[in-house]
């Protein structure tokens, strides 16, 4: 177990190094004069020369790489050409917004997908099951950003049930401590701010959860059906237990582990999709920042974002994996023995 954790942490560190390396080579991909790009479109000759020196573009590639590594480890990813701030400073304000969105969306995914999958499994082949499966197919194919636009249009613009955009109504924002508005509201002991923050998250999180809903619900469904077909359940039912109770009691427990695995696997996609959803709802997360950076051709800010997202994602999947070894004895066993399935 300890060995596995060490191995897993080692792999995460290796990944972070790999990501930094990839991003470094991406800066080398930039066609033309990278210094000009780094300095921004409106830069003077002087600023370009400054940028060239700052980036060390006159040094040999290996040395540049070593510098880049050293700076990245210190958290210096260069300056944004549009905000003129250190990219890391910019990102430290945006990452919590994105993470909070992803976490709430995951919560939504579970809250919606598990009951839906259970229902579909319990009423296998009946109308609700068919309906649920059609829904899964649809939700799996809709581009999140488009769904986000539609939800915003329908539930915010037309029906007015939810706020249109932003993370808080004017003046309702809790004092910034962690950057997670829900947490900050709780810290401030302000239920109104909490409600306001949550309302602003409902539509974005719903849009973001749609594609993942389908995967998770299908998994729950097929897992439960598998569990239903086991002798154990047949036996319990023959002893007079209500099938539905057996499903919930026995099946759901066995489904938990694989659901967690899937969510872990979807994490990367979710972070990518979150960027899209944020831009629709003007949530000031990495996505909006990134979108601006792309539009301004602020390439170094874009690459900084790539690096930060990669690191955040690596850490998040590390956490998911560690939770999993902590909770699922089978996974633990398979890692400690190194056996293949």
């Amino acid at each position: 177990m300890a060995i596995y954790v060490a191995k897993r942490v080692g792999l995460a560190i290796l990944s972070v190094w790999g990501i930094i390396t990839i991003v470094f080579f991406l800066t080398k991909l930039i066609p033309g004069d990278a210094a000009r790009v780094a300095a921004g479109r409106t830069a003077t000759a002087d600023q370009i020369a400054q940028a060239r020196e700052r980036l060390g573009l006159d040094k040999p590639v290996l040395e540049q790489y070593a510098d880049f590594l050293a700076r990245a480890v210190r958290g210096d990813l260069g300056q944004s050409a549009s905000t003129h701030q250190n990219v890391v400073t910019d990102l430290s304000q945006t990452v919590p917004v994105t993470l909070q969105l992803v976490l709430v969306a995951m919560l939504f995914t579970i809250v919606i997908a598990v009951p839906l999958g259970t229902l579909a499994a319990a009423l296998r082949d009946k109308a609700p099951d068919v309906a649920a499966r059609i829904l899964f197919v649809l939700s799996g194919g809709v581009p999140v950003f488009w769904l986000a636009i539609l939800l915003q249009w329908l539930f915010a613009s037309n029906l007015g049930w939810f706020p249109i955009s932003g993370s808080n109504a004017f003046g309702a924002a809790p004092p910034d401590v962690t950057g997670f508005t829900l947490v900050d509201s709780a810290i401030a002991g302000d239920p109104a701010a909490f409600a306001d923050s949550f309302e602003h998250l409902v539509l974005p999180a719903l849009a973001l959860s749609a594609p993942f809903l389908s995967t998770v619900a299908r998994n729950v469904r097929s897992n439960l059906i598998g569990a239903l077909d086991t002798d154990y359940v047949a036996f319990a039912v023959s002893k007079g237990a209500k099938p539905f109770r057996v499903v919930v009691h026995h099946g759901l427990r066995s489904t938990f582990g694989s659901t967690l695995t899937i969510i872990g696997m979807q994490l990367g996609w979710m972070m990518g999709a979150a960027l899209l959803v944020e831009t629709v709802f003007a949530l000031p997360g990495i996505g909006v920042y990134l979108n601006q950076a792309v539009l301004n051709q602020d390439t170094f800010a874009v690459l900084g974002c790539v690096l930060v997202i990669g690191v955040v994602f690596t850490v998040a999947s590390l956490v998911v994996d560690l939770i999993q070894i902590g909770t699922d004895p089978r996974v633990r066993a398979s890692y400690t023995t190194g056996a293949t399935a």
Binding site: L29, G268, G272, V302, G310
Partner: peptide, 16 residues
């Protein structure tokens, strides 16, 4: 693969 495909593709496309 530690970089989400969407994010990596965005970075590369932006650089190119």
């Amino acid at each position: 693969m530690a970089l989400p495909a969407m994010v990596l593709a965005l970075g590369i496309a932006a650089a190119l």
